[in-house]
């Protein structure tokens, strides 16, 4: 397996609010290997966005990475870096694409200038070299007439094209990690496919490792090598794409997969997970999903489940995997998946 370039250990992020401390990310651990795509899935508020912003040190000013957290990027401990050192990592080693391309570009600055900024800052090129590079990037992300486009403003671009520009900005300094925070959520479906293709294509060309945040499981299946499922600020299941899709173990993953519409289930109404995610001002004891889960055991309400190893790459945090746990029958949809996956 490829080299690990990023090791996140026990990452905890909290926000000070008027109501108290919101524990948005409650101790997550994962690795990222060179050139792979790791998808982080979970519903809104599960902490996936916050966790990845913490990797670049760009969480909101009332947020704080807690003491015992560790983010190791190529021998560098990100949590120990000061603002100056972080600025050298941002954009250069780790770059990010945001959710809404309509708002993520500065409306009063030309596209060209916005691409050049990072190049000038990190690569020490002069203006004309940076300009040349920026025009090449515009062409690379599949936009015609790059010379003319270079001088235009964001409002002269469509949503899909703006996202291409944001991708060009992200890739301008050949980062080692690209964080894509729901990059297709705000786009319409045909454009979504184009943007996904573009990211996959550029990844193949540059070998950048991608962390892909999404709540769209269809997208995950399309792009991810590995998948981490997040719930209430924790990773509940992590494994290769095939493992998570075809041999899901955590009841929350079951719920997610069961609530995905598919063309061949015509027999019943679309499943939805009952209830709503817990309030992270006062996170529940034990398994945070227990309150919404029909498979919850008594211990789920008392003690937090550790990660149980299923294979070398597949782990899930649910007491159901404990040797003394009663055997439960997952929903029919999941049983079907298990059967397809050859279990």
């Amino acid at each position: 397996m490829a080299k690990k370039i990023l090791q996140v250990k026990n990452l905890q992020v909290s926000f000070e609010t008027h109501g108290g401390e919101v524990q948005a990310v409650r101790g997550i651990t994962f690795d990222l290997h060179e050139g792979e795509t790791l998808a982080i899935v979970g519903e809104s508020g599960s902490g996936k966005s916050v966790a990845t912003k913490a990797l670049m040190g760009i969480i909101a000013s009332n947020g704080q990475i807690k003491k015992d957290s560790s983010i190791l990027f190529e021998e560098k401990e990100i949590t120990q870096l000061n603002e100056d050192e972080l600025q050298k990592v941002r954009g250069k080693d780790i770059a990010m694409i945001f959710q809404d391309p309509m708002t993520s570009l500065n409306p009063v600055m030309t596209i060209g200038k916005q691409i050049m900024e990072g190049i000038i800052k990190h690569q020490g090129l002069n203006r004309s070299e940076a300009r040349q590079k920026a025009i090449e990037l515009i062409e690379l992300v599949g936009i015609d007439q790059p010379d003319k486009r270079f001088k235009q403003y964001p409002h002269q671009f469509s949503g899909g094209m703006r996202q291409r520009i944001v991708i060009a900005i992200a890739l301008s300094c050949n980062p080692k990690i690209l964080i894509a925070d729901e990059p297709t959520t705000a786009l319409d479906v045909t454009i979504q496919a184009q943007i996904l293709e573009l990211i996959k294509d550029l990844q193949a060309k540059t070998g950048v490792a991608v962390i892909f945040i999404t709540h769209d499981l269809g997208v995950v299946a399309n792009v991810a090598d590995r998948v981490a499922v997040m719930y209430a600020g924790k990773i509940v299941e992590i494994g290769t794409s095939d493992e998570v899709f075809y041999q899901p173990q955590h009841p929350y993953t079951w719920g997610l997969l069961a609530s995905m519409p598919s063309l061949d289930t015509d027999d019943e109404a679309l499943y939805s997970i009952p209830g709503s995610p817990p309030d992270l001002l006062n996170p529940p004891v034990g398994d945070a999903f227990a309150l919404r889960s029909q498979y919850a055991l008594k211990i789920d309400h008392e003690q937090e489940p550790p990660f149980f190893k299923i294979t070398d790459t597949h782990y899930a945090a649910t007491w159901l995997l404990h040797e003394n746990a009663p055997k439960v029958t997952p929903p029919s949809v999941i049983q079907k998946l298990w059967a397809e996956g050859g279990k």
Partner: peptide, 24 residues
């Protein structure tokens, strides 16, 4: 979002404030 993107580019706080925020 565009301030977040400007920060994500690794620009200094100064550049973010003067080039991106004030003019807008």
């Amino acid at each position: 979002d565009y301030i977040l993107l400007a920060r994500a580019k690794g620009l200094t706080r100064r550049a973010v404030v003067y080039k991106h925020a004030i003019r807008n």
